[in-house]
Design a protein around this nucleic acid. Structure first.
Length: 253
DNA sequence: CCGACGTCGCATAGTC
DNA sequence: GACGATGCGA
DNA sequence: GTCGG
């Protein structure tokens, strides 16, 4: 297992320990270890094989043991057991502003809320406002936040994808077969939130352009490939659509 | 072995 | 309206 | 859970 994944596991352990109201210092120990490992340049596998994990600040005997297990087997019995105590979706709830461990625990124990979808239903049924510590205001705000969030699933901040978009545009323009290249849609309009990137290329050689597009270094995977429209996913995770048109119809595309 | 581990201020919403 | 709880960031 | 006296 890779370093980033291990860091993620340690952070998740900390979060789950919060839910069962563990000793706050123990919780922090896990987050500290995660931060520390993140900053550690070296190779975890080597360190694990030489039993030197404890050289990393914040990593003691217990956490070192869990890391070795993760590095070697990709699993941790402790983590698996901890995880099994809660529904997987409960971690989503930490992403909602205003919700922390205490509130989430109450929602889970009293209303069996184990995901954002569950929470939305509970709010809509008016059950959340009944809970001590919650009220109508909170319930309404949660509904609003969740609905708002749904709109942004699979969307990106403009700045987060601008670099990829521009690089792709430039490279398409470099291609000898492309006579006109432009972006379209929300990216062209510089909307703050973009769901996907749209490119339009005028060409006499659609096949070659498509080939070039799907083979581009920024492309992670190809989800659809047709004569006039091709969809791919870039490394950042955003979807990018390419429309190829004849030079004659480009002005109308 | 055993105690310390950051702390404070602010905002918000709920309860008394 | 005061007060404690919770969440969040400095 | 980890660190340090």
């Amino acid at each position: 297992m890779k370093k980033e994944q291990i860091v993620d596991v340690l952070e998740t352990i900390a979060t789950l320990l919060e839910l069962q109201e563990e000793n706050p210092f123990k919780i922090r120990a896990y987050t500290n270890a995660a931060r520390s490992i993140e900053a550690w340049g070296g190779n975890l596998r080597e360190l694990a094989e030489e039993n030197r994990l404890q050289e990393i600040p914040g990593v003691g005997k217990a956490i070192a043991g869990k890391i070795s297990e993760l590095v070697l087997t990709g699993e941790s019995t402790f983590f698996a057991e901890l995880r099994s105590k809660f529904p997987p979706g409960i971690l989503e709830l930490f992403g909602l502003p205003g919700l922390g461990a205490k509130k989430i625990k109450a929602l889970y124990e009293k209303l069996q809320v184990g995901s954002i979808a569950d929470l939305k239903k509970a709010c809509e049924m008016g059950r959340v406002a009944e809970l001590p510590g919650f009220g109508k205001t909170t319930q309404d705000k949660l509904i609003a936040t969740i609905s708002n969030r749904a709109k942004h699933v699979g969307s990106f901040q403009l700045g987060a994808v601008a670099a990829e978009a521009e690089e792709l545009l430039d490279d398409l323009r470099q291609h000898p077969g492309a006579t006109q290249v432009s972006s379209a849609g929300s990216y062209r309009r510089r909307k703050e939130i973009v769901r996907d990137l749209d490119f339009i290329v005028a060409t006499q050689a659609p096949e070659a352009i498509t080939e070039f597009f799907v083979g581009h270094a920024l492309v992670e995977s190809v989800s659809a490939r047709g004569a006039t429209k091709t969809s791919v996913r870039l490394h950042s995770g955003i979807q990018a659509d390419l429309r190829v048109v004849s030079t004659a119809e480009y002005p109308f595309a």
